[in-house]
């Protein structure tokens, strides 16, 4: 799915767009968790094409994405980053979105639209 279509499907709002050209990028899979250790252990293949979906909203999510080379993050349940954390996101060139959907609903909608699990 193209980033723009992912965002539309879950009615997400941009919290920060620090890399405009990634909005046209194709993403093939997603990983959803509030445990960053799980993300670090399980996102192994094609992290550049993986969307991270989480209800955890802090700098450690950004650091985790940075270490993995994940470029697109979606926060569920209308969570927003602090100004300090947005500065970190800017340094990293991430695109970050927030949806009012729950994690379950976010995953369900995106899975239904063709986004895959990190391994199937």
């Amino acid at each position: 799915m193209i980033a723009k279509d992912i965002v539309e499907a879950i009615e997400a709002k941009p919290l920060a767009i620090f890399n405009e050209h990634l909005l046209k990028k194709e993403y093939t899979c997603a990983f959803a968790s509030d445990l960053m250790s799980d993300a670090l252990a399980l996102i192994q293949n094609s992290p550049e094409s993986t969307v991270l979906i989480t209800g955890l909203c802090n700098a450690q999510v950004l650091r985790t994405a940075e270490m993995l080379d994940v470029e697109m993050i979606i926060f569920v349940r209308n969570k927003v980053l602090s100004d300090e954390d947005l500065e970190i996101a800017k340094e990293m060139g991430f695109n970050i979105f927030s949806t009012r959907f729950t994690m379950f609903q976010t995953c369900g909608v995106l899975y239904g639209k063709g986004l895959k699990s990190i391994y199937e």
Partner: peptide, 15 residues
């Protein structure tokens, strides 16, 4: 609360 403590740290570091 910071997203750690899943018990995946050391095994993942070794892997």
């Amino acid at each position: 609360s910071m997203g750690f403590g899943a018990g995946m740290g050391l095994p993942n570091i070794k892997r």
